[in-house]
Design a protein around this nucleic acid. Structure first.
Lengths: 153, 153
DNA sequence: TCAATAGGTCAAATATGTTGACATAAATCC
DNA sequence: GGATTTATGTCAACATATTTGACCTATTGA
């Protein structure tokens, strides 16, 4: 056994691990809360989280190519194939040849695609707006700075 | 078209939505970065993220019952069945009758279960420690406060 | 004793993902 | 211009995962 009195950092290390484990749990529970709203709406239509991600990133960057989408999502072409085809056949996403490079398809939201994306993402926008307004502007900034570090990891 | 000069809040609203969309993306990319390390280790053993979650929560609360685990994970009994049975048969988790109530099973990590959990969670502890040490102690606190609001949502 | 609780398991249907192959059209290189 | 590469689409086989719903045992508690 380590003599705690002669090892003043031992308690601190254990405390630090407990704090970091709380952070792990915050990420788990936050992410679940964050995806719950869209997931519920999607389930009613037989769609899943991947459909939302596709709608989201196509909406963020109209004209996105299939390859660019694959790179953002980090999934295989075959894993994208099914949900993307469904969204196209439901006329939520259009898929037209690029004028500049005939090999490339440009993905865009249709009007109904925009409506669905707005509804799905809307629950998250509202949720985050509520959180930030309760946390205050300064917390929001520190949260963003911290999340950027984690995201770029 | 809305006359921007007579609608001073229009730009602000659009900016605000852009800020909140950045926050959505930060959550998406952060969570992916956060799960990447454990996922890679798990894949080598034919395990997945659910196995890590089970190991994590059993490790956090030794003696946890199956029902308590189901409530934390928010999955069905049948969805838990397979991964939990695998972990028990790999001797990573023990599963003994409770003394107090013979119907209840108490889940605990074995020595090798603790080693695997420490390795999986260790990548996340290190990652978060790096992020927080770069962000500073004050940012860490604001991050926690904000995440608690989102998690409790 | 009877109902409720905790847990384990099975099976069928559905969904999802992986690997690998192959095809087409278009661009680019030589 | 022919060969190669790139972007995309699709298929099939296999593996995995999840859902629904049922059924069973053991144990507890009214």
């Amino acid at each position: 056994m380590i003599d705690q009195k002669n090892n003043p950092t031992a308690d601190t290390d254990a405390d630090r691990e407990a704090q970091l484990r709380e952070a792990i749990e915050l990420l788990f529970f936050s992410y679940r809360a964050f995806t719950r709203g869209p997931d519920q709406i999607l389930a009613k239509r037989g769609l899943n989280r991947m459909h939302h991600r596709i709608l989201y990133f196509v909406g963020r960057e109209p004209g996105l190519s299939v390859n660019e989408l694959l790179n953002v999502l980090e999934i295989s072409k075959q894993a994208l194939h099914m949900p993307l085809r469904q969204l196209v056949s439901m006329n939520l996403i259009s898929n037209d040849k690029s004028q500049l490079d005939g090999r490339v398809r440009e993905l865009r939201l249709s009007a109904s695609g925009r409506r669905l994306e707005a509804r799905l993402t809307g629950t998250q926008l509202l949720q985050l707006e509520n959180v930030f307004s309760a946390a205050g502007r300064k917390s929001e900034g520190e949260w963003r700075d911290t999340m950027r570090l984690l995201a770029e990891d």
